[in-house]
Write a protein that binds this DNA or RNA. Structure first.
Length: 885
RNA sequence: GGGUCCUUAGCUCAUUUGGCUAGAGCGCCACAUUGACGUUGUGGAGGUGAAAGGUUCGAAUCCUUUAGGACCCACCA
């Protein structure tokens, strides 16, 4: 069994590699779709997608045209050495649909792709490589590590970009930006310099979130806070006169060796007299003071709290207020230092146990209580985060945050979903200074140097490859830290468009839309807005569209451990890229975490096949020598399909432009399947207007192209009457139609539907003939009706017999026997009853004077019309029943 | 503690400023069919919109409360 599974997997890999080779091939893209289309009944995406993509790319179809109003989207850069997951598929499907739509609408479109060095993420991967080789980062210099990781990433690179191609993104590859490209680094340095000059960056000792596993600090957003049950230990600190004691409560007894005070609330009657006295720090020979501070909560624990400025952010602040010493007792690798000899070198956990047992021995433990508190964990390793003091670079964030907030309040950026804007404003208000230093080598070095003789003297200098530099006889030592990745990616919109130096792409700044996952609202979107405004005085984008997480079909989060991960590339290999795109865009609204099922993908695949077959039929009807002309609707069906497609187009435009992608694709789907295929193609079997048929196909292809680019372009290329590319053709133009003729066809369709319904309801399954009286609509379309309603015959009669068709109100009878007729009676009676109840409702509504007076006139008018129609129907049904009786 | 969101058909979800009989896909039932398509066609069943109350001529939609669920932020000795 396992073998089989493995082999299947292997087969898939080979297929994938093959496809990726095709995507990257630059030769032999001559397409032989045309001949194949005549033969193959089903559309096989694997045969065409790679070549179609290569064709687009070689034709420069993804490049901006320089004509029309600019429209720009910058892709959130996927990890350069990673693989795409289903979330990327959603992102790029939405982005690409917009890019393709606006391109066809004549806008000057750019979709800028990117690749992320993914600083910390990649570093974690590489760190494992080092570990597996039995070495560690401290065996190498920053330069050595940087170039090692660079080579490592370089080997893996390209895969992600091929996968984006497989998804069909119409991105401007020539303008791809890697987050470690020179222009990125240059801009990041200049932003740093400007912040420094403006006094918005400072270096200082602060308590940072420290990962002892990866030996780097984190920003607040990289810490996972988990609520958990813990223990609050009560520990007695004997007073210096050995007469009394004060009992403190703590969850972290091992940090007591770093205590430099005990704090109580100034008004706490229990301890008032003790303020200013000293206590012995147990297990040591140190004496520490009891101090008073407002921030102590007298109702928590014992009301007395040990103060450890080196290992707790609040204690750190209190320590500053009271001039307390900071004694570091946990090292940067997570082991104990500056503690009694038997504890030195222990891990935090071991130290806690030993400390407690030592206190126990000395009878200083005064009890313990269970509490629920939240503990910060390293989001990557899952180990606890240690709050430690470190010299770090910080951005004074509030000036930037408030400016961003004002821009949001002023409505300079719109959000889908709208409510996220308020969430963001709240976030900006609560934002603390941003630690931008990271102690990992894979990233952009912080361009700062420290005077070796004067530690407070820091200067900006870009010569980061030099370990020391000499300026005016003073020696400066470089900063070894690198920037937080979000500091550089927060500048992404203006870097990728060269907005600062006004290059040719700067017309695309601010970006039209920023589309990304709602989980990135604070960590990325907020930072782009702040830094964008700071550097360019403009918001970086005009609209933010946030999508939710893609869950598995049961609504569970996808994860490797659960084994429910859907690999988009695998889905493409089995159902095609378009099918995946159609499947993932359907049934999905902004901001919601929503389930994704392959059912939808299958539906998408079926739709592609539908298009394929409409094309096959059209081509066979239209012939090889057809020359495309302006559509000339002549028959009722022609006018009707023009009306349907025009209505659908307008609807799609409105929906895409208001970011309602699922609804837009649904409209497109139904216009093509229900109207074009089910009615118009069927109707055209009884009429001859090849130019119209070709126009219907062309319009359908254009309409579907933003959502299903590959199959539409494949067909377009196969049709002998097209020369250029569908991707660069224009969105369908308005075509006039005759509303009356269109409405006539709709009535005909109604009649046909009624016949189908009645026939299905009739006992037996034989075909019936249709008799009609003085009804020119039926007379003129006898053949069409016969075919579509599957009738034996359609004949004129002046002697009606059989079953009168009541609903559509035509002079028409189904030629059935009296016996069958009687069996049908019951159906009619049900329908009559339903109509009566509808009339009842309408009458109630219309007799309500408040409704008639206050509701819009059109609505009231509509109700009246409906009532009339129902009353007519009742008459007909009644008379029909009389005939039967 | 502060905030956001969700609860609609068997399943997954739509339904934009309140307004026609609340719609799709899949699933289900019945029937059909040999040349565009079985990855098909035709017809159908299935919803007191989480619960209760309110505003309104009219509520899935707005307000209040309750229940259940997801998430974000802050603090936690």
């Amino acid at each position: 069994m396992h073998l089989e599974k493995g082999e299947k997997h292997k087969g898939f890999r080979e297929k994938l590699v093959y496809r990726c080779c095709l995507f990257s091939s630059r030769e032999n893209i001559e397409l032989k779709v045309y001949l194949v289309m005549k033969l193959a009944k089903t559309y096989d995406p694997n045969l065409y997608e790679p070549n179609i993509y290569a064709m687009w790319e070689q034709s420069n179809a993804f490049d901006p045209t320089g004509k029309g109003e600019p429209f720009s989207i910058v892709m959130p850069p996927p990890n350069a050495n990673g693989n795409l997951h289903i979330g990327h598929a959603l992102t790029v499907t939405l982005e690409d649909a917009m890019a393709r739509y606006y391109r066809m609408k004549g806008r000057d479109v750019i979709y800028i792709p990117g690749a992320d060095h993914a600083g910390f993420e990649t570093w974690v991967v590489y760190d494992k490589v080092l570990t597996s080789k039995g070495v560690n980062r401290f065996d190498f210099s920053r330069e050595q590590l940087y170039s090692q990781v660079w080579n490592f990433v370089d080997q893996q690179r390209g895969n992600m970009e091929l996968q984006l191609r497989a998804l069909g993104v119409s991105a401007s590859w020539k303008n791809l930006v890697f987050t470690l490209d020179e222009k990125v680094i240059k801009t990041v340095y200049s932003t740093f310099k400007q912040l420094l000059d403006d006094g918005l960056i400072y270096r200082g000792e602060r308590i940072v979130n420290y990962s002892t596993k990866y030996q780097t600090s984190y920003s607040d957003i990289e810490v996972d806070h988990k609520k958990e049950k813990g223990t609050l230990w009560h520990i007695a600190y004997p007073s210096s006169d050995r007469i009394s004691e004060i009992v403190v409560a703590t969850t972290r007894p091992e940090t007591m060796f770093g205590d430099t005070a005990v704090a109580v609330h100034p008004d706490d009657a229990r301890y008032k007299d003790l303020i200013g006295t000293n206590v012995f720090l147990p297990l040591t020979d140190r004496i520490i003071p009891i101090i008073a501070d407002d921030t102590v909560d007298p109702t928590f624990g014992t009301g007395a709290v040990k103060i450890t400025p080196a290992h707790d952010p609040n204690d750190f602040e209190m320590g500053k207020r009271h001039n307390l010493d900071r004694i570091q007792v946990i090292d940067f690798n997570g082991t104990m230092i500056n503690v009694p000899p038997q504890l030195i070198g222990l891990s935090v956990d071991e130290a806690r146990k030993l400390t407690l047992s030592l206190l126990q021995t000395q009878e200083l433990l005064r009890g313990e209580t269970a509490i629920e508190h939240s503990v910060g964990y390293d989001y990557k390793s899952g180990l606890p985060i240690q709050p430690l003091i470190k010299d770090q670079w910080f951005i004074k964030i509030q000036p930037l945050a408030q400016r961003a907030k004002q821009a949001l309040i002023d409505g300079e950026i719109n959000f889908t979903p709208e409510s996220r804007k308020r969430v963001l404003i709240q976030y900006l208000d609560n934002l603390h200074d941003w630690n931008i230093s990271r102690q990992i080598p894979w990233g952009i070095p912080i361009p700062a140097f420290q005077n070796v003789d004067q530690p407070d003297d820091w200067i900006f200098d870009e010569r980061v490859d030099e370990k020391t530099i000499v300026i005016d006889g003073k020696t400066y030592k470089r900063e070894e830290d690198t920037f937080d990745t979000w500091f550089s990616s927060g500048q992404w919109p203006f870097i990728t468009t060269d907005a600062l130096d006004g290059g040719p792409l700067s017309r695309f700044y601010p970006n039209s839309v920023m589309e990304t996952g709602s989980d990135l609202l604070d960590r990325w979107v907020a930072r782009m807005i702040m830094l964008g405004l700071y550097r360019t005085d403009k918001v970086p984008f005009k609209h933010v569209y946030l999508h939710g997480m893609v869950l598995d079909e049961k609504g569970q989060k996808m994860s490797k451990s659960k084994g429910n991960v859907i690999n988009p590339i695998e889905t493409i290999a089995s159902h095609g890229s378009d099918a995946l795109r159609l499947g993932i865009i359907a049934n999905r609204s902004a901001g919601q975490n929503q389930a994704f099922s392959t059912n939808r993908v299958i539906a998408g695949r079926n739709f592609c096949n539908k298009l394929w077959n409409i094309a096959r039929f059209t081509e066979s009807k239209v012939g090889d020598n057809f020359k495309s002309t302006d559509p000339q609707p002549s028959t009722m069906a022609d006018h009707w399909i023009v009306r349907q497609l025009m209505t659908a187009l307008a609807d799609i435009e409105q929906k895409v432009e208001s970011y309602r992608f699922a609804e837009a694709s649904e409209t497109m789907y139904h216009a093509i399947w229900d109207d074009a295929a089910d009615w118009y193609v069927e109707a055209s079997k009884s009429q001859d207007n090849p130019a119209m048929l070709a126009w219907v196909l062309d319009t359908s292809l254009k309409m579907a192209h933003p959502f299903a680019p590959f199959v539409t372009e494949t067909i377009w290329q196969a049709l002998p009457w097209h020369e250029g590319l569908l991707i660069t053709t224009s969105w369908p133009a308005k075509v006039d139609y005759d509303e009356i003729a269109a409405a006539e066809f709709a009535r005909l369709a109604q009649l046909i539907t009624e016949i189908r319904f009645v026939v299905t309801e009739l006992p037996g399954n034989s075909r019936y003939g249709l008799l009609y009286g003085a009804d020119s609509l039926i007379a003129d379309n006898a053949q069409l009706i016969q075919r579509l309603a599957r009738l034996k015959s359609v004949d004129f009669t002046d002697q009606p017999r059989g079953l009168r068709l009541a609903v559509s109100g035509r002079e028409a009878w189904l030629d059935i026997s009296a016996e069958t007729l009687r069996e049908h009676q019951a159906n009619l009676e049900i329908r009559l009853a339903e109509t009566y109840s509808q009339i009842d409702n309408l009458e109630k509504r219309l007799s309500n004077t408040a409704y008639v007076e206050k509701a819009p006139v059109a609505l009231v008018e509509e109700s009246r019309t409906q009532l009339e129609q129902c009353q007519t129907l009742v008459k007909r049904l009644t008379s029909e029943l009389e005939v039967i009786k």
